[in-house]
């Protein structure tokens, strides 16, 4: 078992024939993901990577029965791609594109309220992977191993770091989700934690956050009441100066409640195993499972 994606997922690639789409679709296919086709407006009817290209997501869904899409469309057009996927009935939309204007995402979120069956992951994220079944993202597949740890994180390479530590300690993963670092995203930390808590095959959860926002605090408060599995947490940005932007729009220190220290304190109070050093994430999970 796993959450959201698995060997039965039928994946459509939006922005299929572009350089990013081509590169990562190739990697996903090599990993064993069931990529059923792609969408590039104006190139419908062609074949790319031995798979059909469609003009619209709707055509792709009707022809292939796709239920998952991954978006590699330039940021100026990515919001429209998310909406198109939802309108076509895609259940899980994974948006990799980085740099989507905030105003566009405000409209996307509003639009998605009419499509409660559609879940968005991202944007500006590495995607989602169920090891040895399906990789719907840009993460390096080889560091992952099938197992029972759920991983949810706001960042890319820091997630790889955590997964690598887990794998090297013999702890495989049920599913890993990078939810993205933008101010407006689809699936939140709490959403992912709930899914993992309800997944019988997930035995422990690693939650990696950053300064800024309140997502980790909300997730921690939920875990305190509903948690049934050990959760290990880390917040990046303990040394980030106040008021400075550290690459992610998500990483802006706003008030006192969204500093790394405040979040880590809340997480501790809620029974989460908080690590101060990012080098100890895997070890802490191993200890927590004892």
């Amino acid at each position: 078992m796993s959450i959201l994606v698995g060997k039965n997922s039928r994946v459509l690639v939006q922005g299929f024939t572009g350089s990013e789409g081509t590169f990562h679709a190739t990697q996903m296919i090599e990993y064993g993901t069931n990529v059923v086709g792609g969408v590039t407006p104006g190139k419908g009817g062609q074949k790319h990577l031995d798979r059909p290209v469609f003009n619209t997501v709707d055509d792709g869904v009707k022809t292939t029965g796709a239920d998952v899409s991954i978006i590699f469309v330039p940021p100026a057009f990515a919001a429209d791609s998310i909406i198109e996927a939802a309108a076509a009935g895609i259940k899980l939309v994974v948006c990799i594109s980085e740099g989507i204007p905030v105003a566009d995402m405000v409209r996307v979120k509003y639009f998605l309220e009419d499509f409660p069956a559609t879940r968005l992951i991202g944007p500006n994220c590495p995607g989602i992977i169920t090891p040895e079944e399906a990789k719907v993202g840009i993460m390096p597949g080889f560091i992952h191993k099938k197992g029972h740890i759920g991983v949810v994180s706001r960042s890319g390479t820091l997630t790889y770091e955590a997964v690598d530590q887990l794998t090297k300690l013999g702890l495989g993963q049920s599913t890993g989700i990078g939810i993205g670092g933008d101010p407006i995203i689809g699936t939140t930390t709490l959403d992912a934690i709930k899914l993992f808590m309800n997944d019988p095959d997930t035995h422990g959860i690693v939650m990696i956050g950053e300064i800024g926002g309140s997502m980790e605090t909300e997730a921690a408060q939920w875990v305190k009441i509903h948690g049934t599995k050990p959760v290990v947490g880390f917040i990046a940005g303990q040394t980030a100066p106040k008021g400075r932007k550290m690459g992610h729009a998500g990483a802006i220190i706003g008030g006192t409640a969204d500093t790394a220290e405040a979040k880590m304190n809340t997480m501790r109070e809620c029974g989460i195993h908080v690590v101060e050093s990012p080098a100890n994430i895997g070890r802490a999970m191993k200890d927590a499972l004892k």
């Binding site: 994180s153 706001r154 960042s155 890319g156 390479t157 820091l158 997630t159 770091e161 670092g181 990696i208 950053e210 300064i211 880390f234 990046a236 940005g237 303990q238 040394t239 980030a240 100066p241 400075r244 932007k245 550290m246 690459g247 992610h248 990483a251 790394a260 101060e276 050093s277 990012p278 080098a279």
Partner: peptide
């Protein structure tokens, strides 16, 4: 490159914003 100047003594160069912040944290630790 995405760079923010700070006042410490250990420079760092990292790929990814989250890992970069985590690296700053481990420098401090």
């Amino acid at each position: 490159l995405n760079f923010v100047k700070l006042d410490g003594n250990v420079g760092c160069m990292v790929n990814g914003a989250g890992l970069a912040m985590a690296t700053m944290d481990i420098i401090k630790l």
